[in-house]
Every structure is written in C-alpha cells, then in structure tokens.
C-alpha cells in the first residue's frame, strides 16, 4: 500500500485546507508549478493513482481554465486593454489574473481529487468517528459520497421510465421545464422513502447525532500525523492572514 493511501484521511483533509490557503500566496506561474509538483509527487508514490488523477484533473480544469483566461484576457475591461477586434480587447493584466486564478484552482483540484481518489468514504467516516468528531458531522460528510453514484443511476432510471411513458428530451423551454418536474419529483419522493428507511436502520443500531463512541475497526493514525495536521491548519490561518494583510495594504 502506498504512502498516499496509508495517510489518515484527516491528515489529507488538513493538507487540502493548507494548500487552499497556500496557493493564494503564490504568483501565477508558481501556482501552476505547485499543481504540477503535487501531481508528480502523487504519481511518484502511487503509480496506479497517477493516470486516473491526471485524467480527472484535465476533465475539470481544462474547460474552467480556458473560460477564465478567455474572459479575463479578451472580454473584461482592464486599465491596460488594447483594442483587438470590435468589442474585443487584449489585456496583459487580465491574462495574468486569469493565469493566476486558473493555477490556484488547478492546484486545489489536484489535491482534492488526490484526497478523494485515495480515500474510500467508509474509511473517512471511521477516521472522523475514531477522532471523536460528532457522529452527525462524520455521517453528513461521508454518507453523500457513499450514495452519490446510486442516485446518479436513479436519475437515469427515472429518465428512461418517463421516456417510456412518452416524454421526450428537448422541445420548447416550457416543455423542458416540465421535464424538470417529471425527473425531480420521483427523485425527491424516492429519496425521502430512502431517508426514512436509513433513519430507522441508524436508530436500530443506536446511532445518535452527538454522543462519542469508539470504532470497532480504527483507521491507522500516528502521533506525528496529529502534529502535522495541527501545523497545516495553523499555517493555513497564517497564510490567509498574510493574504488579507497584503490585500489591505494594496487598498491603502
């Protein structure tokens, strides 16, 4: 098992919080470099995870980065805008801003997807439970991750069922709006039935929202990871403070 998979899920979440604030301190190109570095490190320590991670990162960040760069560089009005064609302008300030923003978002996407792909939701749930987090919070974070795929499949099933009754995709906006009701109404009703059943099962097992319990199968954790988590979260606050201070200085 690789180091990425062995880390306690809480340590990975703390690293994510730290990175989200750290990238705010980086200049545009450095944030892209940071994203590449994180990707390379994850790929190096877990060759199975690397290609999957790269594919997901590209799927998420390419459209986002293209749109942000285009709008910031060509469409938004910046002080240094030079006429390009018709209402279009070229702005170096806009280009740098777009580059910075997309680099920051890409960095966070890389880390969040690495965390998600290397952490089974059940393991996250047990780690939070073992750490004494309120069971309600642990349940609310991990449970949606566990049931998301089944709900996506359910939407498809509802769609197919409505199509067999004569409903068709497309048409006028009003027809499509009616389609929203046809799809969402059965989804909400079946979700409420499932929530009811789940609450009965949880109640039968003695689940309570707040009291602390021990876990039967604890996720491995080490004392050093506790200190790493503390340091990462503390650093993220310091970084956010520095960013706020720099921003306030620029406004004075």
């Amino acid at each position: 098992m690789s180091v990425t998979l062995e880390l306690n899920p809480r340590t990975k979440l703390a690293a994510l919080v730290w990175a989200a604030s750290f990238v705010l301190l980086l200049p545009p190109l450095a944030s892209w470099g940071f994203a590449g570095l994180v990707l390379a490190v994850v790929w190096g320590i877990s060759p199975q995870l690397g290609p999957r991670l790269l594919r997901r990162v590209l799927e998420v960040t390419l459209p986002f980065s293209a749109a942000v760069l285009l709008v910031q560089t060509i469409f938004l009005r910046h002080p240094d805008a030079e006429p390009l064609y018709g209402p279009l302008n070229f702005s170096r300030i806009g280009f740098e801003r777009g580059l910075s923003l997309s680099g920051r978002v890409t960095s966070v996407v890389v880390l969040s997807l690495a965390t998600l792909l290397s952490t089974p939701p059940a393991s996250l749930l047990r780690a939070l439970d073992a750490a004494g987090w309120p069971p309600a919070l642990a349940y609310l974070i991990a449970s949606p991750l566990l049931i998301l795929e089944s709900f996506k499949a359910r939407v498809q099933a509802i769609r197919h069922a409505q199509q067999t009754r004569g409903w068709r995709l497309g048409g006028s906006p009003l027809k499509r709006l009616r389609g929203v009701f046809l799809l969402i109404s059965p989804l909400i009703t079946t979700a409420l039935i499932e929530a009811d059943q789940r609450s009965h099962v949880l109640a039968q097992r003695g689940f309570r929202a707040f009291p602390r319990r021990t876990t039967l199968l604890p996720v491995p954790d080490a004392a050093w990871q506790h200190w790493v988590r503390l340091a990462l979260v503390s650093l993220s606050f310091v970084q956010l403070g520095v960013v706020s201070w720099i921003w306030l200085q620029s406004k004075i």
């Binding site: 609310l140 709900f151 909400i188 979700a191 409420l192 929530a195 929202a209």
Partner: peptide, 21 residues
C-alpha cells in the same frame, strides 16, 4: 435528530444530481 440527518444526506445528493438533470 436521525431523521433530519438522513434527510440532509439525501438532500446533498439531490443538489449534486440536480446539475446532472
């Protein structure tokens, strides 16, 4: 309570698949 917790969990997923619809 437990009933509200399970409602919130499925509501989160409904929000996410709403984008799919």
């Amino acid at each position: 309570n437990t009933r509200v917790l399970t409602l919130i969990a499925v509501a989160i997923v409904i929000n996410i698949v709403g984008g799919q619809i």
